[in-house]
Design a binder for these strands. Sequence first.
DNA 1: CACTTTTAGTTCAGGTGACGGTCAAACTAG
DNA 2: CTAGTTTGACCGTCACCTGAACTAAAAGTG
Lengths: 414, 414
Amino acid sequence: MPYQALSDRGVTHPDVRRANLGLVLRHLRDHGPRSRASLAADLRMTRSTVSTLVSELIERCLLTDGPLVQSAVGRPGTAVELDGHAVCGIGAEINVNHVSTMALDLRGRVVGDRKLALDARSMDSTIVLGHLADLVRETVDRLDEEGVQTVGLTVGVAGLYDRTRDVLTHGPNLGWYDVPVGAILRQELGGSFPIVVDNEGNLAAAAEVIPGDAGRQDMLVLHGEIGVGGGIVSGGRLLRGSHGFAGEFGHMIVEPGGRQCACGRQGCWETVSGLRALLELAADPDDPIRNPTMALDDRLAEINRRAGLGDARTLQALEDVATWVGTGAAILVNALNPATIVLTGYYAAVGHHMRTAIEQALRAGVLAPDAGGTQVELSVLGFSAAVRGGATAALESVFADPTRVPRRSASAPV
Amino acid sequence: MPYQALSDRGVTHPDVRRANLGLVLRHLRDHGPRSRASLAADLRMTRSTVSTLVSELIERCLLTDGPLVQSAVGRPGTAVELDGHAVCGIGAEINVNHVSTMALDLRGRVVGDRKLALDARSMDSTIVLGHLADLVRETVDRLDEEGVQTVGLTVGVAGLYDRTRDVLTHGPNLGWYDVPVGAILRQELGGSFPIVVDNEGNLAAAAEVIPGDAGRQDMLVLHGEIGVGGGIVSGGRLLRGSHGFAGEFGHMIVEPGGRQCACGRQGCWETVSGLRALLELAADPDDPIRNPTMALDDRLAEINRRAGLGDARTLQALEDVATWVGTGAAILVNALNPATIVLTGYYAAVGHHMRTAIEQALRAGVLAPDAGGTQVELSVLGFSAAVRGGATAALESVFADPTRVPRRSASAPV
DNA sequence: CACTTTTAGTTCAGGTGACGGTCAAACTAG
DNA sequence: CTAGTTTGACCGTCACCTGAACTAAAAGTG
């Protein structure tokens, strides 16, 4: 009989410890550094309990004592804060024209950032994954020399990733079908840290969660490039669906009998809200912004420039596309009632010219008054959202169970 | 400073006890009666721990010793099973033409079922709620005399119920706007058990969850009547959205510029997939099945009869509507990737004639091959789904924390 | 039939870890 | 300098899970 994950198992005393260690760690992440005494007040624990928890977290190099904090009267407390110097999580991304990695420390700071340009379509998948493994190995080894332990790797791929079978079933952009990405990478990199593979859009969505921000716990994240995708966050957690295929918004049919889509269907949302629709509306075929060899950032900058100058055609194109974005988003808002819609990808770049029309279409298409209170925001993460989300997901395991990081010698006094 | 729910608080030893008591209770619910020893094996706890947990649950009248079970060799164990005789949860529903309640015991058996016909539109909301409170009070008092304690009431209303403000903001069917249903009922009924109000469609969706059935943990529940609504279940939990407005599928615009909807928009899904669309396609205005005074069940039975006899117009109408149901469902399946779509309301009644066309439209409209593995099923709960879901939701609090039910004297030996 | 084996359920000592009280330390206010 | 306040460490107490020992009840064996 194969290993079967039991639905649940009994809670033991070490579980209590784990839960409380995680609670302290997450509280410091979500609400910033503070003294042991205020931690105790916030978390309704006794000061003695917090003291032992904090000292254990310090032994595990996850916290450090910080500056003294004085509050009105009494003995000042010593603030404790997250220690970024012991562990990191790594996020990676496999795209058509590059593979890249990003390492984040416990505080969410970038401590490693690699990118390798390649043409994935012309190469075998194992070769591409080998290159990615090299990038990861270099990052891990370098950080290891600095005493930083890698706690996990989360890889984002463009396509349908079946999490139940751990296989990329459909990666049309990469030309990959039924590739067991996770298994191949685990073989390449060994088992010193867990390796998880997920859909790129889902990871980018996860990156938009801001711990402690109520408006960022129920989100619809819309990612626009040539294709349109994204993710759904509910109660701070990513909604993946039964196989992990959730978030394929681009192929919702919003206009039956509408424009032909690359997927073979007609009227998919991305045919009217994707980057191609915007470019075709905004410019003639010989216009430089429709030159595919030009860098995307530059083309978007040019669109912004023209819109800023009041160019009628550009503004109209942005408005038309924005109306479709809002119309499609309204469908999802009726179903999901998110607190926030976060626009990423090219939407984030030119979104300030689209926002009004999006919000208008949203109010028109959502049953609940005022679009059910849903706010539209532009992402500030840029195109690194997916790798950042991957690294964050890897770090999440430490916040969930700090005992995954081994105890080291207590802080050596100098 | 008002009471502020802290994001989290420390885990204490009594919490361990609570968690383990709940674990045992839920395991018996999900997997059926079994001996203490097999509980220990399933939950990875020691037999001694299970023994104390079980005896505490018996003291709280939530479990009883059952028959002996013999397995091959060795001493037979005494199975323990859920005891239905101590507590119940109550679900209620406020509809245009009736208010109703249903009480379920811990095993999910119906121990009370009341219904009062009334015309809600012609009455003040407080009067209607007074009638509902009477119904609930009678049920609670009767059960109380039998020694059954009510642990909670969950009320479903048709309309947009804002869970953050605890107010029915928009109830067009009832003609209710900004009615604080929860507060009114709490005043009527006193505070002896918690009262929660939720959207009817959401509760009906929650009722479709089958504990322990993997295919019923990630669901899209579609409820068809004149309007179309439903709910989303993710990981066994209802997705409510930031204000509780999730699940308003009927007003997704699936056909821009399409048929006029009662909500004022054009092309809403319910204009092509609701009961009215089916009736108008299937029969002329003077046909008895379009007679609104005739009971809905009878009209649906007549449609089934005609379809069964092979009537071309009826079959074509069912197929046309089913194609729209599948087309709209495909939009949501792309976004959510549920394991199962459960059809309720009139869909459940005539769904066996719609299923093929729905599945075909689903496969055509979902990016993932084979509709992402999503299965279409017909609900067997009928029109009582919402009250049943409400009662289940109320009982859930006991499964989450069995210590909510007080200890009584140990089983009196006769 | 007595005896061994196997499984079930209870009892009790032991260990983990949170709680609560005490106390020294460190600061402010008068 | 003294009184008052808050912090953080230390320690006894208590809740509750674990594991070993023990009894109970069945089947199999000679």
